[in-house]
Each structure stands twice: as structure tokens, then as C-alpha cells.
Design a protein around this nucleic acid. Structure first.
Lengths: 124, 124
DNA sequence: ATATGTGCAAACTCTTTGCATGGAG
DNA sequence: CTCCATGCAAAGAGTTTGCACATAT
């Protein structure tokens, strides 16, 4: 059985997520974790993220037109707000209504994604 | 002024879009256009798509977690349905309601994107 | 002591660009 | 007969993998 070791690099990466509490890009993870473990490399970010996803501590967040982000697993169903000014992505709860009526005839919908765009509170 | 030439390659690429009437990936464009101009290369697809976007004959469609697609410009506001079985993307008209209430306090929304997932009529 | 994790560099994939040739005007 | 467009191959950007060394257990 695979034993997962508790290393300084992984502690740093987990801390970055705990502090941010929003979906982070690989670049944001690297920058944040390097403030704790300076010579951490991008390969370690990708490998640690991969194992944290397998452990179900993180989940991947697909954003339109940008690279994949990751956030802590176990949150209630939610969607994402993208700030055009700072590029950060935030969670928000709730869904709009009336999506069933939008599905083309003969199609079957089993899921949806909502992305809102604009300006976040700290950039306003 | 830049003169745009009417070549067999660009005619083929435009025909692929006219026949499909849905957002196409670079790979789908290449495969479709090669049925008309067999030794067409991917570089030409990217360059032609770029100029068709500049001419405003195409617009880019950003999909979560996959590469950029393109569709004909000038359509009314709409969103996209992604078939999990065949991977094709289709347009649908209309929007859900109640999105304003979802915006976090202090944030300002200026746009939205909706993606529906499921099975299309031809895969059902 | 042993096997997993890390850093570096090379490999890969997708997209873009340089250059010589081809073809539209 | 001019230039723009094309095909090929090389160059970039982002992500993944191989390998030798470091380190958690």
C-alpha cells in the first residue's frame, strides 16, 4: 500500500490552500508555497496536487480559457466568480433557476457549470 | 491594407464551419478540412482561424477544461451544451434567471457563462 | 534501512513562428 | 510579376516523466 509522507513541501502546499480558501492555479500554488519552501519546483507542485486530488483533499476546477485550478474538496455544490482585474477566482453558493427549459429537444442534461465575471470586492 | 486571398484551404475551412454549425476544435477543423484539401497542415488551420477571427467571421469559444473552440460570429447571445459521449459542443439559446442574487456582496458582475453537460440527441 | 518525495532536466502536447516555395491577384 | 498563403520544421508555453539524491518512516 502506498504510504504518503508528510514533507515540508506538501505542508507548504496545503497551507497555501488553507490560507487562500479559493481555487488556485499551479502558478499561484508555486508562488505561495515558495514563500515557505523557497527552492520548491513546479514539478513538485504538479505531483503534490495530483496526489492531493487522489487523496480527495483537493478537486480540480476547470475554468474556461485558462489552465486548471484546484480547490479544497468537500465543499457544497457551488460555482465560480472570476475577477477580470486581479484574475482571482472565488466561490459562490447557489444556482440560477430554469436551466431545464434551456436543454435542446432530444438532449439529456446531467450537470451544469456557471461562471460569473466582473470585479471582486478588493478590486472595486 | 491587407488583402485577404481566397485560397482552397480557407474555402475548405469555411465550409467545415458552414456544414457543422457548432463550435469546432482545431482538431475537428483540421480533420474536416483535410477531407477537401488532404495535405492541409495544422499551422494553416491556426493561421486561418486567427484571420477569420480578425475578420469577425469566427469567434473564439472558451470551454472549461478543453482547448479553445471557434464558431461563426454574429449569433445571438447563447451558451453551450457539451455531450459527454461524442465530445461535440452545441449551441442553445436563452439564459437561466436569478443570477444577480448569486453575486457575493461587494462584487460586481458584468457577464456570465453557462455550460450544460449530458448526452446529445444523436448519442442518446 | 528502505522506499517515497524532490529537484533538475528532458520529453510531450498544443500552439505559434521562420523560412523557402507556391499560387492568387 | 508581386506578395500573401502554405507546408514543414523549429521554437515556445504549460505539463509530465526519468533519474539520482535526499529524507520520512
Amino acid at each position: 500500500m502506498t504510504m504518503i509522507r508528510d514533507t515540508a513541501q506538501r505542508r507548504a502546499i496545503r497551507k497555501v490552500f488553507l490560507d487562500a480558501d479559493r481555487p488556485l492555479s499551479p502558478e499561484e500554488i508555486l508562488t505561495g508555497a515558495q514563500r515557505i519552501v523557497p527552492n520548491l519546483g513546479m514539478a513538485t507542485v504538479y505531483r503534490s496536487v495530483k496526489s492531493l486530488v487522489e487523496e480527495e483533499w483537493l478537486v480540480a476546477v476547470d475554468m474556461p480559457g485558462e489552465s486548471q485550478r484546484y480547490e479544497q474538496a468537500g465543499k457544497a455544490h457551488h460555482h465560480h466568480f472570476n475577477c477580470r482585474t486581479c484574475g482571482r477566482v472565488y466561490d459562490f453558493d447557489g444556482c440560477p433557476t430554469g436551466m431545464d427549459e434551456l436543454v435542446p429537444p432530444g438532449f439529456v442534461m446531467d450537470d451544469h457549470e456557471i461562471y460569473l465575471y466582473g470585479t471582486c470586492a478588493s478590486c472595486k
